[in-house]
């Protein structure tokens, strides 16, 4: 019996020793895994954005773009994220919506900018979408919803436009898994605290839109695609309550008012 126990332990030990030895090789670099993944995402991102931008009106007015860019840059620089790598777009639409597309595209609708009460709420939504990008949720959702085979077909240029439309619809108007949404919420709260922005208004935003304005659901895409808003708001409050952080404004009140006014005038 002792012999069997010894041999069993030796086999288990040999397995883990082999694993350790093989793990010393940098396979990711050898097979160029990261480059391949990144190239696939890049191709899909370009494909999506080319299609999406043809059918939607992007906003380029300085009064809107500059303050929005200040908020994004503040969150990025405070959290070690390269702002230049994020493709930021503001779309002229009344819907309250924001979403991320492959290849680090971050899209915000003017309807959402009009809906928020202050810059901290807006920063929370931006942080939430950056979190989806940084945590690689976008491609995962795409693969999960439409399948790996379809994603690969699309990158090879053999996908038809109907598949493209359906995939785009999935990314722009359906929720991630609840756990992914919660992860993105908490990551956003982290981003905000690092950037000296109060995360509580973001929780308020979720809580308010999750309840009172349910009758406006047709314009509330971001909420309908981000369910359990009240629970998630509570989660953010609970997560941040013991944290110490500064509360500073990124935009002065004039810039903020100009932004709101410019959006209303569109």
């Amino acid at each position: 019996m002792d012999k069997i126990v010894f041999r069993l332990l030796a086999l288990v030990g040999f397995f883990f020793a082999s694993l350790w030895a093989v793990n010393q090789v940098n396979w990711m670099e050898m097979f160029g895994v990261k480059e391949n993944i990144s190239s696939t995402e890049q191709k899909i991102g370009e494909l999506f954005w080319e299609f999406y931008s043809k059918n939607n009106e992007e906003v380029f007015e300085d009064d809107i773009v500059l303050p929005m860019d200040s908020l994004l840059s503040k969150i990025c620089t405070s959290n070690g994220i390269n702002r230049e790598e994020i493709n930021f777009h503001i779309i002229n639409k009344n819907e309250v919506n924001a979403f991320a597309l492959p290849n680090r595209h971050l899209v915000i609708y003017t309807g959402l900018i009009a809906q928020v009460k202050n810059e901290a709420e807006l920063s929370g939504v931006i942080g939430h979408e950056i979190a989806h990008i940084e945590m690689d949720h976008v491609m995962k959702k795409l693969v999960k919803e439409i399948g790996l085979a379809v994603v690969i077909t699309m990158t090879s240029g053999n996908g038809n436009s109907q598949v493209l439309i359906e995939s785009l619809k999935t990314l722009t108007s359906s929720a991630y898994d609840r756990s992914l949404e919660e992860d993105a919420d908490l990551k956003s709260a982290d981003y905000l605290m690092e950037a000296d922005i109060d995360p509580m208004p973001f929780a308020d935003f979720l809580y308010t839109l999750g309840g009172e304005n349910a009758e406006m659901e047709e314009y509330m895409s971001w909420i309908s695609t981000h369910p359990y808003s009240k629970e998630r708001a509570e989660e953010i409050i609970h997560y941040c309550q013991d944290k110490i952080y500064q509360k500073e404004s990124v935009l002065d009140s004039t810039s903020w008012k100009q932004l709101k006014k410019a959006v209303e005038e569109l």
Partner: peptide, 20 residues
């Protein structure tokens, strides 16, 4: 493929050992 995990060096090493 379907969850939150990503391809990593540990994963490729594990597959290599499994193959052996």
């Amino acid at each position: 493929i379907f969850g939150d995990e990503s391809v990593s060096n540990n994963y490729i090493s594990y597959l290599a050992v499994v193959l052996i």
